[in-house]
Design a protein around this nucleic acid. Structure first.
Lengths: 268, 268
DNA sequence: CAAGTTAGTTTCACATAATGGAACTGAGTT
DNA sequence: AACTCAGTTCCATTATGTGAAACTAACTTG
């Protein structure tokens, strides 16, 4: 987890492990810190760091002798966001929904069994980019996570759950696959999922999946609030709006799933 | 340019070239499309694509047989944004400035001679994350770009300019290093730079650099508008506010440049 | 201030892992 | 049934990456 050398395929895999290790620190990190947290021997780690820095995937502060994630990642991620995520398609709908409800709205997708937030609206104050997009969270104890898990094909679900370490974040967290599966069953029939302070105390949310025509989850959409401001019943009232927006997004997503513009006149 | 196999260091470098090549298309791309745009032979390209997909750096649509940038990049970029860019530090100041001026505000940094936008505020409507952060632009014909170039040490400047292909975007674009250098001289003395429709017709902006104590540019800050709404003189009036905000950000950035929290009790 | 410690860099004999030409598969055409 | 063309696999060759150990430089410490 985190700094696991996930069965590295070749040199590239190892390089990615190193990237991940740097990311895990969440701050500029010294060579040695990486060295004893990591499985790769000194010289190997050293060369990998060099190469990655060279490539702009890491940035190296020569004064402090520290490494941090490089800005090239920001450029590339912009492409990923635009090409691969459902966010650009969902954008206008998020605007609409957030304007209507005046609540915090999240858009998420599943990535390797984890919830990856790809967009967010916070009605109260203007939101800064990147600050929240790119965040990840556990799927089994978040509203959007459960909404998506509920509609995952069985084998995908098994794989997603195996990747999770079911740790108890709050007293309400579902920590065994058993009760989670029950909950997922219920979500599947109701089409709505709730986070009952399962991830963070006093944070609650209502979420729906964004499904394609094959009923597979393409993403999730949620309204988040606190127990101070809302009850779960209050949130439940948002469900219809959420469902409508999810449906709208799903509709817009169809052409995206079957792109027509594939064969362009090859520029000789 | 773009798909240049920039003197690849090793396998990792080649893998990054492939990433960049996929990014360059800006849409899901077929194997063959990459193949004949790229210098790597079939089998090699194939394996690199496999590895990258495996690693989540690319995503592969098995139906359409296309590759696109992967979501792992979004996760990593979030880290880069938080660790390496000046954006998180500048965030509250951007909020403030944008609230005061009610105009579109950009925060940028230099990356490999290009302008990389790392944050943005648009007072009129709520802004989506990632949509603009991560964008790149040419340094020599944007307000923030010139503001930063003006304060670059000579050898860095030479390197940055060599990377640029001085193409004429509008009739106002400075296309020769000569006149650009003159302009930079002026910016250096005045501390403000203008984009006089040099990048896009009718788009103008005023920008200032964010300088560290060594007077090296850490980033740039700009207010953008259109010729319909403002004259250059109007924009010039924003300069003092921009300078103040840049100063505030620079001050906050000092501890960041000399992080105290480096030696933590090593977790045995 | 010499001996000791720590952090980072370089070397080099060795072996793994990447290479790419060519052959193969299988879907789509004619 | 013969012919594309896109994508995938094979495998002998060799380039690349490997990592223990030696080295250097800065920084403590007795």
């Amino acid at each position: 987890m985190g700094t696991t050398p996930g069965h590295a395929d070749g040199t590239v895999g190892k390089a990615m492990d190193v990237l991940e290790a740097v990311a895990a620190f969440g701050r500029p990190v010294r060579f040695t810190e990486l060295l004893d947290g990591q499985v790769y021997p000194k010289a190997t780690l050293y060369r990998l760091l060099q190469t990655l820095t060279n490539q702009g995937m890491l940035s190296h502060d020569p004064d402090r002798n520290t490494y941090a994630l490089g800005m090239r990642l920001i450029r590339l991620a912009h492409g990923a966001w635009a090409q691969t995520s459902i966010a650009p398609v969902a954008r206008p709908f998020l605007d609409q929904l957030s304007a209507k409800l005046g609540e915090t709205v999240h858009l998420a997708q599943l990535d390797a069994g984890q919830v990856l937030y790809v967009d967010k609206r916070n009605a109260t104050k203007p939101i800064s980019m990147f600050s929240d997009a790119g965040k990840v969270g556990p799927a089994y104890c978040t509203g959007v996570g459960k909404a998506m898990l509920a509609f995952l094909p069985e084998d995908d679900l098994v794989r997603a759950l195996r990747a999770q370490a079911f740790q108890s974040h709050t007293s309400a967290t579902l920590t065994d696959p058993q009760s989670l599966r029950q909950e997922l069953e219920q979500i599947r029939t109701q089409g709505v999922s709730f986070d009952r302070e399962e991830h963070e105390p006093s944070i609650i949310c209502v979420a729906v999946p964004i499904l394609n025509t094959a009923s597979e989850p393409m993403g999730g959409l949620s309204v988040t609030s606190t127990t101070l401001r809302h009850s779960l019943n209050d949130l439940a009232a948002y469900a219809p709006d959420l469902r409508n927006t999810a449906q709208d997004i799903a509709t817009q997503l169809q052409p995206w799933a079957f792109p027509q513009h594939l064969s362009e006149p090859r520029s000789a």
